[in-house]
């Protein structure tokens, strides 16, 4: 397998050449184009329960496997957001990820939902994605992605953390000390503790959605 990430960091797309018999598992919807030698197969990997768990983690119920058959083949894989793509080699290790960041992987990697408890209710959602095993993992961001080596602790605003190594733990905290800070959602921040890598994106889909909201027409009372 050979790969190249083109048009990074703003409009990153993963171009991958698979040798005959090699396969890549791709988040549904992320395949942009492929050679006719690349054959897709959709399956509910790990059975119904695993599928449901993935679904709850914001990922898809089904996993799509793309295999080169009868020769090598090229496939283009693009995330839903415009932004960067990160490559991470996993060697019998685990990383956690924001819902929706997962793009694709090769090798023996399991993706499953991770219960983030009530602290997660204020962050990216109740559930995150746990990715573990050995292989090559690709994930995407909205905007640029910045890698931070955490030694001790680090603060990330709600909605900007993309992925973090399992050696890091986080909690949701209030940042300001002023009484009026409760008025602002962005005053809830994620504080990461421990030693490990953390990936942060430089744009927030939620902030964009909140910005667009006032441009919607106001529903008239007669509707």
């Amino acid at each position: 397998m050979k790969y190249d990430i083109i048009s990074a960091p703003s409009y990153a797309l993963l171009e991958m050449t698979l040798n005959e018999g090699e396969s890549v598992i791709v988040e549904p919807g992320s395949m942009a184009w492929m050679d006719t030698t690349v054959k897709p197969k959709t399956e509910m990997k790990g059975g119904l329960f695993s599928g449901l768990k993935r679904r709850m983690g914001g990922e898809s119920f089904f996993l799509n496997t793309y295999t080169a058959e009868g020769g090598s083949g090229k496939i283009g894989i693009a995330p839903g957001y415009s932004g960067d793509i990160v490559v991470k080699e996993l060697n019998n290790e685990t990383i956690y990820m924001e819902r929706g960041a997962y793009l694709c992987h090769l090798g023996n990697i399991e993706t499953s939902v991770s219960w983030e408890g009530f602290k997660g209710a204020f962050a990216e959602g109740m559930l995150g994605l746990r990715v573990s095993g050995t292989g090559l993992l690709f994930f995407g961001s909205y905007g640029d992605v910045q890698e931070v080596e955490v030694n001790g602790s680090y603060i990330v605003d709600n909605g900007y953390a993309v992925a973090w190594e399992s050696s890091l733990d986080y909690s949701i905290e209030r940042s300001g000390r002023k009484i009026r800070s409760f008025l602002f959602g962005d005053q809830l921040i994620c504080k990461y503790r421990g030693n490990g890598k953390l990936w942060i994106q430089t744009r927030s889909p939620r902030n964009l959605a909140a910005w667009v909201h006032p441009f919607r027409m106001v529903k008239s009372k007669s509707d």
């Binding site: 001790g152 603060i155 605003d157 900007y160 602002f184 962005d186």
Partner: peptide, 15 residues
């Protein structure tokens, strides 16, 4: 107010 996306943990943020 909404512009901060990352900060070192010794940063005091006042609104």
């Amino acid at each position: 107010a909404g512009a901060m996306y990352r900060a070192s943990s010794n940063m005091e943020i006042e609104v």
